[in-house]
Computed example of a mutant assay.
Amino acid sequence: MAEKIHLPKTIVDRANAYYKQVHDGKYLKRRSYEAIASAALYIACRKEGVPRTFKEICTVSKVNKKEIGRCFRLMVKASDTQVSFISSKDFMSRFCSNLNLPTSVERAATNIAIMAVNLDIVPGRSPISIAAAAIFMASQATNDKKTQKEIGDVTGVADVTIKQSYRLMYPHAKILFPDDFKFSVSIEQLPQF
């Protein structure tokens, strides 16, 4: 699975260690080996600082997102492993790189996502959805515009979800962008849905 998403051997080794640590435990009885391995890979990625989404792990596994999530929660409980919360910032660099966006757009999108969360503009939204909407907003303010579909293809977030998060952010655009951001279009010219 790790080879399919180009993960280094250190992550594979860590995932193997997590797998061995819990695979015989009472918490994971009646769980498939594939689900346990997928959850172990997910944990290892987060611990090594290169988090992947459940959807990304699902694409290389034969297990659905729900089952990987269950195993993840059980493994964290069984191994007493501390797993930090993920934030939009954790994914921003990879997503922007995959979209061939310049670092100025990445910095702006990161700022937008952080501010949106800190100001509680996007309550209940996942960090991935927030990142996707922030990338959309930042790219629309430059000459490096990306569509919701392009961003959705890279992030795994549905177009409509990007639009919903963006709608929440749009009224606050003036305070979400960094002060030194170089706009190609005015904030008033950003798309309104």
Rank of each mutant, 00 (worst) to 15 (best):
T81D: 12
Q82S: 14
V83P: 11
S84V: 11
S87F: 14
S87P: 13
S87A: 13
K89P: 08
D90V: 10
D90K: 13
D90T: 13
M92S: 15
S93E: 14
F95V: 07
S97R: 15
N98M: 13
N100L: 15
N100A: 14
N100R: 12
P102I: 01
V105Y: 03
V105E: 01
E106S: 11
A108R: 00
A109Q: 09
A109I: 07
N111L: 09
A113D: 07
I114H: 13
A116Q: 07
A116I: 08
N118R: 13
L119Y: 15
L119F: 15
D120S: 11
I121R: 08
P123W: 03
P123F: 05
P123R: 00
I128C: 09
S129E: 14
A131I: 12
A132H: 06
F136D: 00
F136G: 01
M137E: 02
A138T: 00
S139D: 11
A141P: 10
A141Q: 08
T142V: 07
T142M: 05
N143H: 04
D144T: 05
K145S: 05
K145D: 01
K146G: 08
Q148G: 11
Q148Y: 05
E150Y: 10
I151K: 02
D153V: 14
V154R: 12
V154S: 10
T155W: 04
G156C: 07
V157G: 10
D159R: 13
D159H: 08
D159V: 09
V160G: 03
T161P: 04
Q164W: 04
S165Q: 03
L168Q: 15
H172E: 05
K174M: 06
F177A: 03
D179Q: 06
D180G: 01
K182I: 10
F183R: 07
F183T: 02
S186T: 03
I187W: 01
I187F: 04
I187L: 06
I187V: 02
E188T: 03
